[in-house]
């Protein structure tokens, strides 16, 4: 016999959510969704959750089990029951409606923000557009997304910043950024490089861990980053951070922590500095506080603090031994 500790919530009856325990012994080879259904159908009909296909393709039945998002239909009950107990809660980062049902509206709004449809050339061929198997493989994984919201639920950034597009929308974006039939690649990566986009991803990998399909958003986000850098969309802290980081490795085999923050906020190369000056003058003329000032002032306190404690990286940056081989590899790969 296992205990199903389920977070209950019904604002029609009670304002605050609470946990209720149900006893049920799931037969071998049955899913967590089967258990939920048995509990609903034989113990408490008021228990509410979403479900439909029960074959891990419709994306309806994502819930949190033991604190992490899963698809209820995809997991064997015995695999999620730990020490005879499983705790079931609604998905995170979304407002609960009732019991395990949450409000998906903000999730869909973010999907809408990434121009979630193909923008092909106007002229249509008589038959299909050709796409090589290699080109197909670039969008193969992202196109498996079932919009279940598991990644969105457990995303570490969304927990603190609603403005982040989130893993599902960004995976959907990669579906088009990587599509050889789309003509808006550059415009897409420009939009995705804005605040709330790809560079706000914190690399925590939660979305990969929770994704029930091969879509695995974090990997897709990284793929968009590579395209953005290739397409020359460099005028933002995220892109400059990547460029500065890689440049530093190229020169010394090792990260120069003194230079990285300064280059990230804009002091990167002649062209970068020209851009920086132009952008910030524009802001000044529009009566806004130039971001570079905010950025620089953001760096000063932590820098001083570290300096005081002797935590500043060596002023003279040392290379790794045999740095020539590192440089050679960069050259060989045309970086």
């Amino acid at each position: 016999m296992a205990t199903f500790k389920i977070k209950r919530y019904n604002p029609e009856i009670q304002r605050e959510p609470y946990y209720e325990e149900f006893q049920y012994d799931p037969p071998e080879g049955t899913t967590l969704l089967d258990s939920l259904n048995e509990i609903k159908w034989t113990q408490d009909g008021t228990l509410s959750y979403r479900m439909s296909c029960r074959s891990a393709i419709c994306g309806s039945c994502a819930v949190k089990a033991n604190g992490h998002a899963i698809l209820a239909c995809q997991r064997q009950a015995e695999h999620v029951i730990k020490n005879d107990t499983v705790v079931l809660e609604p998905l995170g980062n979304m407002k609960p409606i009732k019991d395990l049902v949450v409000d998906f509206d903000p999730f869909w709004e973010k999907i809408n923000k990434v121009t979630p449809y193909l923008k092909p050339e106007e002229t249509k061929p008589e038959k299909e557009r050709h796409q090589s198997q290699a080109q197909f493989s670039i969008i193969d994984d992202s196109s498996t997304c079932i919009m279940c919201g598991a990644c969105y639920s457990d995303c570490n950034v969304l927990e603190v910043d609603d403005n982040f597009l989130g893993p599902a929308a960004l995976a959907k974006a990669q579906r088009f950024v990587g599509d050889s039939r789309d003509k808006d690649r550059k415009a897409r990566v420009e939009q995705l490089s804005e605040p709330g986009g790809i560079w706000d991803c914190t690399h925590c990998g939660e979305c990969v861990e929770r994704c029930p399909k091969p879509a695995e958003p974090f990997h897709r986000i990284k793929e968009i980053m590579t395209v953005a850098l290739e397409e020359g969309v460099h005028n933002n802290n995220g892109a400059r951070h990547a460029l500065s980081f890689t440049k530093s490795i190229k020169h010394s085999g090792r990260l120069n922590e003194n230079v990285l923050p300064v280059e990230s906020i804009g002091f990167l190369g002649v062209k970068g500095i020209v851009n920086l000056v132009q952008d910030n003058l524009k802001m000044l003329m529009q009566g806004k506080v130039p971001t570079v000032i905010k950025d620089v002032f953001g760096l000063i306190p932590v820098g001083l603090r570290m300096l005081k404690k002797g935590k500043i990286p060596p002023i003279i940056h040392h290379s790794v031994d045999d740095v020539d081989d590192v440089k050679r590899i960069f050259k060989e790969l045309k970086q």
């Binding site: 449809y117 193909l118 092909p120 249509k124 299909e128 557009r129 050709h130 796409q131 090589s132 198997q133 080109q135 197909f136 969008i139 193969d140 196109s143 579906r175 088009f176 599509d179 039939r181 789309d182």
Partner: peptide, 12 residues
């Protein structure tokens, strides 16, 4: 043409 993803043969 709408953008549906199809597996491809070796000719694309």
């Amino acid at each position: 043409h709408m953008g549906c993803v199809f597996s491809r043969d070796k000719d694309g």
